[in-house]
Amino acid sequence: MFPDDLYQPGRKIAGYSAILLPLTKTAAPDWAGFEAHVARTFDAGLAPAINMDTGYANLIDSATKTEALERTREIADGREYVSGAYVGDQPHSSFDEAAYRTEMELIQSFGSTPVIFQSYGLTTGSDADIVQRYQQLSQYCEKFVAFELGTMFAPFGKIYSLDVYKELIQIPQCLGAKHSSLSRELEWERLRLRNQTREEFRVFTGNDLAIDMVMYGSDYLLGLSTFAPDLFAKRDKFWETSNPQFFELNDTLQYLGHLAFRVPVPAYKHNAAQFLKLRGWIETDETYPGSPTRPESDLFILQEILDRLERWM
């Protein structure tokens, strides 16, 4: 079905931006670069998302996650930010409620809202099983963000049925859900269901290949926005004020998205480091050990995109 019924010009967009964890030449966290990037994301008017896939949540240790939360809390000074609650497991693992509770309570102790990453244990079983697990987790927090993740991003990901999604919408503590299927039609279905069920529930697009989903009522929680939180915020303002520059700026940012989110998709984090280094915002373009890399030839294309974006900076 065409999405004409969803089109919402002039809407104020809520933007959440996954923060890249930059690295030094020795592959240690570049905390100065991290803090500066968190600050510029806040200053742009976006809510930082800490310890997400963009921050190597599946690779970093607990001490690094905790330090990222500590440093972000100081910069936030009461402003909203969200953080990934990641529980690593293996295929056929059982649901580890205790591990999720530990992650969620840690995140909340720093004044942040948990984004509940999927795991094999969370997403196996029937629809009723999955819903019950989210209901169990909801008792450990005032609010949380759910997360559907396609397997192109992570092997433990799962895109839920609409029946599961409808039940998630009706959990009072669930303020929204990030949808990362890279499918417009699946996201449109969720937007229609949201509009019929609970209007304040936020559908956070995670479709880095269709960032114009904000035109149809989606908000966003994106890895792509870490490349340019300033320009995403400007694009959002153009939409809110019905400024036609929205379309050209969105097109150029989408060009960046199509380059960065090609196969293998997780290598977008290396492109992010390359782009942020080109902008002079971080010192190296190192990516975390174990994360896939991009060729050095990408730098030429990234610079060309940066040159196109210069007019809006």
Rank of each mutant, 00 (worst) to 15 (best):
H270T: 03
A210P: 02
G125V: 08
K158L: 13
F147L: 14
A27D: 15
N243E: 05
T287V: 14
G206Y: 08
V87N: 12
E80H: 09
I171L: 08
Y81C: 03
A267G: 11
R73I: 00
Y81M: 06
F156G: 04
A68S: 15
F201I: 00
A272K: 02
T252M: 12
S291I: 04
L253Q: 09
S17H: 07
A260L: 01
S181T: 02
E80I: 11
V87P: 11
D96A: 10
Y16W: 07
A18W: 00
D208N: 15
T226E: 04
Q274K: 15
A14T: 10
G121C: 05
T284C: 05
D77K: 13
L299M: 09
S112M: 12
P266H: 08
A177G: 05
R308M: 11
D163M: 02
T293P: 01
H37Y: 09
G15I: 01
E310P: 03
K277W: 02
Y86D: 02
Y16C: 11
I60F: 05
L221K: 05
V203F: 04
R279I: 00
F144L: 03
F275L: 04
E97I: 03
R73D: 07
L193V: 04
E240I: 03
K178A: 06
I50E: 07
N243A: 03
G290H: 04
L231S: 14
L168W: 04
W31H: 06
R202E: 04
D230G: 14
V265M: 14
R71L: 08
R194H: 06
R101P: 01
S291K: 10
W312R: 05
A68E: 14
S119Q: 05
Q118F: 00
K269T: 01
V115L: 14
K158S: 12
L186H: 10
I305F: 14
K65M: 11
A47K: 09
E286V: 10
L175P: 00
P292I: 06
E304W: 00
Y7L: 15
K12Y: 08
L175A: 02
T226S: 15
V164H: 11
Y120R: 01
D208S: 08
T197E: 03
P292W: 09
L175M: 11
M52S: 09
R279D: 03
R198S: 01
F117L: 12
R198G: 02
D219H: 14
S242F: 09
H37V: 02
Q8K: 13
V203D: 04
T26N: 14
D236F: 12
P295M: 04
T197H: 07
F34D: 08
Y86N: 09
E200R: 13
M1S: 13
K65E: 12
W188F: 15
P244I: 03
D43G: 11
L168G: 11
E189G: 07
E97G: 00
T41K: 14
Q118I: 02
T293V: 10
L224D: 01
E185I: 05
E80C: 00
T113P: 05
V87G: 09
K269D: 00
F2S: 10
P3Q: 10
D219V: 00
A68K: 03
F275Q: 13
K166P: 00
R235M: 15
D30H: 09
